[in-house]
């Protein structure tokens, strides 16, 4: 038992150390600032600037968050505060099924539906030309993948607000909306932040589905209708293939290390926010 626990606790550390160890050749060849923030990606001439990948990853993650978070929040409030008991009973298995669908299926569906939708309908609306394989498509697919996760956690959070607390709000003369706004959401703040954090971390690390729709071209663009190339896709696409190029192996390890550290950072930041937002401290 204890050994298992220690192993579980040590695991992240072991992963981090292994990745760091393997990244050392690259870190010796170039400065870390250059590696992280240069946009010159030319492995053949020994230039490894990761910024396009990091940028793409952040971009799709933020987009997916913008699409999914408010939607999940409203849906969870609706389901826990307004919907009939029957609807909730129906929704629960539906959410579980959505959460259990393998990401390759989301990816396929993204290619079949989201990519043409973005390329053929959405881009022309903005007067743009797009193949559909784009940051935006990646963001949408990610958002859809994150929804069941976040929704589930948010529903649980809202359901755990004691009935007596809501009754207290009502009995003081609050309307239903005031009770939701001042009491339910406030009481749930740590849970909401934690749901958002886990959703974001999941989005940032998600590989397959995004890779299938995002276009995989390393460049920096603010235009969401253009292709991007997130970090996980870089690793998955190239590992085991381009390893004849010097330092490429080490570069992919470094990419994994960056991914790992960012996910860790997201977790830490949200953990801090949860503690800071704890209503016990207001």
């Amino acid at each position: 038992m204890l050994t298992a626990l220690v192993l579980i606790l040590l695991f992240p550390l072991l992963i981090g150390v292994a990745l760091l160890f393997k990244s050392i050749p690259l870190l010796n060849a170039d400065s870390i600032v250059n590696l992280l923030f240069s946009d010159n990606w030319a492995p053949n001439s020994g230039k490894f600037g990761f910024w396009p990948f990091i940028f793409s990853s952040l971009y799709v993650t933020v987009l997916s968050f913008i699409f999914s978070a408010p939607l999940c929040l409203l849906a969870a409030i609706y389901l826990t505060e307004f919907a009939s008991a029957r609807l909730i009973r129906i929704m629960h298995p539906v959410i579980d099924i959505l959460a259990g669908i393998p990401s390759v299926i989301y990816g396929m569906w993204g290619i079949l539906v989201i990519v043409p939708f973005v390329g053929d309908y959405l881009a022309p609306v903005f007067g743009l030309n797009s193949s559909g394989y784009s940051i935006l498509a990646g963001g949408i697919v990610l958002a859809i993948m994150c929804i069941p996760y976040m929704l589930n956690m948010l529903i649980e959070t809202f359901k755990s607000v004691p009935y007596g607390l809501k009754e207290a709000g009502f009995s003081l003369g609050a309307t239903h909306w005031e009770t939701i706004k001042h009491i339910v959401i406030r009481k749930s703040r740590p849970g909401i932040i934690s749901a958002f954090g886990l959703g974001m971390a999941k989005a940032f690390g998600e590989t397959l589905a995004v890779m299938m729709v995002v276009g995989n071209i390393a460049r920096i663009t603010g235009n969401p209708f253009e292709a991007g190339y997130p970090l996980p896709a870089l690793i998955a696409n190239n590992y085991g293939e381009m390893l004849s190029i010097p330092l490429y192996d080490s570069a992919l390890m470094f990419a994994a290390l960056v991914l790992f550290v960012v996910v860790l950072l997201i977790n830490l930041v949200f953990r801090y926010l949860i503690i800071a937002s704890n209503p016990a401290k207001v």
């Binding site: 007596g164 607390l165 009754e167 207290a168 709000g169 001042h182 406030r186 009481k187 209503p279 207001v282």
Partner: peptide, 10 residues
């Protein structure tokens, strides 16, 4: 009520 339910504020 039976149990106190302070609002999640000061």
């Amino acid at each position: 009520s039976q149990k106190p339910y302070p609002l999640p504020v000061s």
